Simulated scan of single mutants.
Amino acid sequence: MTRRFRQALAFEWVKFRSVRSTVWTTAVMAALPAPGAAFVAATGSLQPDDTVLGGSLTLSVPALMLAAVVGALTVCGEYGSGTVRTTFAVVPRRGTVLAAKAVLVAGLLYALALPATAGAYLVGDALLDDGYAQGEPLPALFGVAAAFSVAGLLGLAAGTLIRHAAGTVTAVIAALLLPSMLGPLFGGAERWVAGSSPTAALEKLMQTSDASTDAVGSLGAWPSLLLVTGYTALALLAAAALLRRRDV
C-alpha cells in the first residue's frame, strides 16, 4: 500500500467518523441482527421448514439495506456539503479517492457484519427450541458478511454516479428489492435476474425458507454472491471512469 493511498484512506476514515448520519446508520446496521433473533425466539414465529440460522438472521435483510445506504452516504454527503472539492484538492487522483472509499466501506462493513450476524446466530441458537433444523453457519456467515460489503460498495458506486443522496438511496433499494419481484417476468432468465441482487445472495446464504427458486432464482448461494460481486465491480469501474471525466 503506497504512502499516498494510506494518506487517502486515513483522510476518508476521519471524514467517515465525523459525519453523524453515516456513523449512526452504521451503528444501527450492526445492532439490528441480534434483537431480530431474540424477537423470533420470543414470538415463536420461526416456520417449521426454516432453519435456526435463517430465523436468527431475519433482520439481516433490512440491515443489508442500511449497509447500502452507508456506502451511498460515504460519497453523497460530500457532494451535498460541497466538501468534495476539498477532497479532490487534497488528493488530486480521483481514482485513489474512490479506491480509498471502497476499501474503507468494504472493510468496515465486513468487520462489523461478521460479529453482528454471528452473534445473532448464537442468540437464536441459545433461545430457539431444538426441534428446528440447525442450518450450516460455516462458511455461510463469512459469505453473509461479504454480502454486506458488496451492498455497501454498490451504494458507493451508485452514489458516485448519481451524486444525490435521495436518488442514490432510491436506486440502491430498488436494486436490492426489484430483481426478485421482476424475475418471473423474464422466463428462462429468471434464475439470473432474481438472483442478481445482494438480498438474494444474502437469503440463500442464510438458508432461510424464503429463499425459494421462484423468489430469488435457482442459482446457488455462492454463485449468486459472485454474480452480485461481479456487477458491483463493473459499477465501480464505471463510477471511476465517470469521476475522472467530471469537473467535480
Rank of each mutant, 00 (worst) to 15 (best):
F5A: 13
A8C: 12
L9H: 15
L9Q: 13
L9V: 11
A10I: 10
F11H: 15
F11D: 12
F11Q: 14
E12P: 04
W13A: 15
V14H: 15
K15G: 15
F16D: 03
S18K: 04
V19F: 10
R20F: 11
R20Y: 11
S21Q: 12
V23D: 05
V23T: 15
W24H: 04
W24C: 01
T26D: 05
V28N: 09
V28C: 13
V28K: 06
M29P: 14
A30S: 10
A30P: 13
L32T: 09
P33Q: 09
A34T: 13
P35Y: 02
A37L: 05
A37T: 04
A38N: 01
A38C: 06
A41L: 09
A41T: 03
A42D: 00
S45Y: 02
Q47N: 04
P48M: 05
P48Y: 04
D49W: 04
D50M: 03
D50Q: 01
V52F: 01
L53S: 07
L53I: 09
G54A: 03
G55C: 05
L57M: 11
L59W: 15
S60P: 07
V61F: 03
V61E: 07
V61S: 14
P62C: 05
A63N: 06
M65A: 14
M65K: 00
A67D: 08
A67R: 09
A67I: 12
A68L: 03
A68P: 09
V69M: 08
V70P: 12
V70E: 11
G71N: 06
A72H: 04
L73K: 04
V75H: 03
C76Y: 06
C76N: 04
G77Y: 02
Y79P: 00
Y79I: 02
G80H: 03
G80F: 00
S81E: 04
G82E: 01
V84A: 06
V84W: 02
R85I: 02
R85P: 00
T86C: 06
T87C: 01
F88H: 00
V90P: 05
V91H: 13
R93W: 10
R94V: 08
G95T: 07
T96C: 11
V97Y: 13
L98A: 12
A99N: 05
A99C: 05
A100D: 10
